[in-house]
Lab assay of single mutants.
Amino acid sequence: LTVQLGNLEWHFDNPEQALKMAEELAKRYQLKVEIDNGTLKFK
């Protein structure tokens, strides 16, 4: 699973870790998370 923020990307083997990080980033920057083809992206 990949977490993508702008041109930064983090790759996780563990989806739970990816979701946890995505939630933290979304909270911190007040963004919405969307999943696009196995990639978590922020809007």
Rank of each mutant, 00 (worst) to 15 (best):
L40T: 00
L40Y: 12
H11V: 07
Q17N: 09
K27H: 09
L19Y: 14
K27A: 11
L19M: 13
Y29F: 13
G6A: 06
P15R: 12
E16P: 04
L31N: 00
Y29T: 02
D13G: 08
G38L: 06
P15T: 10
Q30K: 13
D13L: 09
L1K: 03
H11Q: 06
K41C: 11
A22V: 05
W10K: 02
L1R: 04
K27N: 08
L31S: 02
F12T: 02
F12C: 15
N14L: 08
F42T: 02
I35L: 13
G6W: 11
E34N: 06
W10Y: 06
N37F: 04
L40A: 03
L40R: 01
A18S: 02
L1D: 02
L1N: 04
T2W: 08
N14Y: 07
G38Y: 06
E9N: 10
L31G: 02
E23T: 12
E23P: 01
I35P: 03
E34P: 01
K43R: 14
L40W: 05
V33N: 00
L1A: 06
H11S: 06
A22I: 06
L25G: 00
L5F: 14
D36W: 11
Y29P: 00
Q4I: 14
K32W: 09
K32C: 12
E34V: 15
E9C: 15
I35H: 08
E23Y: 15
K41D: 01
E24W: 15
P15Q: 09
A22R: 02
Q17E: 14
D36I: 14
H11F: 11
L1Q: 04
L19N: 03
G38T: 06
A26E: 04
K32Y: 10
A18W: 06
Q4D: 03
E9W: 13
K27I: 09
M21G: 01
Q17H: 12
L25N: 00
A18L: 06
T39C: 13
L8E: 06
R28Q: 06
V33T: 03
L5Q: 02
D36V: 14
P15G: 06
E23M: 14
N7S: 12
V33Y: 15
Q17D: 15
Q30I: 05
Q17A: 13
H11M: 05
L5D: 02
L1H: 06
V3Q: 02
W10P: 00
T2E: 03
H11P: 03
K20S: 08
K27D: 06
G6T: 03
E34M: 13
T39K: 11
F12K: 01
L31R: 00
N14R: 09
P15A: 12
W10C: 11
W10E: 00
E9M: 14
K20Y: 07
K43Q: 09
A18V: 05
F42E: 01
Y29W: 09
T2D: 04
L25R: 00
D13R: 09
L31C: 10
E23I: 13
E24V: 14
K43T: 13
N7M: 12
F42K: 01
V3C: 07
A22N: 00
